[in-house]
Design a protein around this nucleic acid. Structure first.
Lengths: 161, 161
DNA sequence: TTAATTACGGATGAATAATATCCGTAATTA
DNA sequence: TAATTACGGATATTATTCATCCGTAATTAA
C-alpha cells in the first residue's frame, strides 16, 4: 500500500501556488524545477487537479496554473483524491462468496462485515484529510519554515511565473 | 494505493480460526479451499501472521494454524500490519530539499509539514483499525450471517482441521 | 523406522500498477 | 507568424504484487 508520489508533488504544488499574487500563474515547467521532479509526469498530476476544479490551467505564454478556489476551501482530501482517486484502499473481493457451505440461492444482503470495518477506517483517513485546508497548511508552514526561505522562494517563483 | 489482497485473506482466516475449539488447528490447505484462494500464496500471509505472534503454526499431520491470543486481544490493525507492514501509506521523498532557494547548509529541523498532516491521517486510519477486535467482528458476524451458514461452516472446518 | 503431512523459507516467474517520456493538438500571447 | 503553454493519447520502463515451485525440518501415525 503506497500513495503515488504524484500526491506528494500535487500537495507541494498547491502549497506554492497559494503564495501567488491574485491571478498570477505558475507553469508546470517552473513547478517541476522548483521541486526537482520530472516536468512531463508532474503535468499529469496538475491536469488531474485541473479536472477536479482545484486549479485552473491557462494556455499560451504567461500561462500556467493557479488555484481555482480560496485556500480555505481546498482540503488535503480534495488534492489527494484528485490524484489518487476516490476508491477505498481496501477492495473487497467477496471471498465470503466462496464459502462451500453457502446455499446456492444466496441473496447478497449487507456488504461483507470485514469490508465494512476496513471501509470505516478508510473513512477515518479521509475525515482526517478533509480536516486540513491549504490555509491551515500555510499557517503551519509560516511557523516551520524560516521567513527568509519563504520570501526567497516567493520571489523565485513570481519571477518565473 | 491499494492494500494487498492478502490482507483480506488474513482477516477472513483469523475470523474462521476464532470459531475453532480450544487447541484445534486449521491447515493452510483447508483455509485456502474454504475461501477459494491459492494455497501457496495464502501460506505467505499466514506465515506473516505467525511471525507477528497473531497465530501459531504447528507442524506435522493434524498441524495447521490457530489463534495465538484471545479474540479480544487481536485487533484489525495487528492483522493488517502483519501482512502489509507498519510503514505509512504516504512516504515523504523530501522534495522540499530540492527548493533552489534553500541555503546550502540547511539543517533538517522538523519533518516536512505536508508529510506530518499525511501521517496524521495515516494514524487516524490505524486508530480506527486498532479499535476493532476479532471479538467484535465475531459479534457482528453473528448478526450479519444466518445461523445456519455459521454452523455449517463451523462443522465443515472442524471436520477438516 | 518409515511414510505421510504440515509449516517454513528461498527462489523464481507472471501479471499489474506506478513511473516516466514522447509527441501531436489547440489555445493564447507577443 | 512564431513562441509558449495546457492537454491528452501512446508508449516505454521500472517496481510491486501476485503466484507458483521446491527443498528442509518437524511431527504424527502406521
Amino acid at each position: 500500500m503506497n500513495l503515488k508520489n504524484q500526491v506528494e508533488w500535487a500537495l507541494h504544488c498547491c502549497s506554492v501556488m497559494m503564495g501567488l499574487p491574485q491571478g498570477a500563474t505558475l507553469p508546470a515547467k517552473v513547478l517541476a524545477e522548483f521541486h526537482g521532479v520530472p516536468k512531463e509526469y508532474l503535468s499529469k498530476a496538475l491536469q488531474s487537479l485541473s479536472q477536479q476544479g482545484i486549479v485552473i490551467g491557462t494556455l499560451g505564454p504567461n500561462g500556467g496554473y493557479r488555484l481555482a478556489k480560496s485556500p480555505d476551501e481546498i482540503t488535503f482530501l480534495d488534492i489527494v483524491e484528485a490524484v489518487e482517486g476516490k476508491r477505498s484502499g481496501f477492495s473487497c473481493a467477496e471471498i465470503r462468496g466462496n464459502n462451500p457451505c453457502l446455499p446456492k440461492k444466496h441473496k447478497a444482503g449487507k456488504p461483507c462485515t470485514i469490508a465494512r470495518y476496513m471501509w470505516q477506517a478508510d473513512e477515518a483517513w479521509r475525515t482526517s484529510l478533509r480536516g486540513v485546508t491549504l490555509a491551515e497548511l500555510g499557517r503551519q508552514l509560516a511557523e516551520d519554515v524560516p521567513a527568509e526561505v519563504l520570501s526567497k522562494s516567493h520571489e523565485w517563483l513570481v519571477a518565473r511565473g
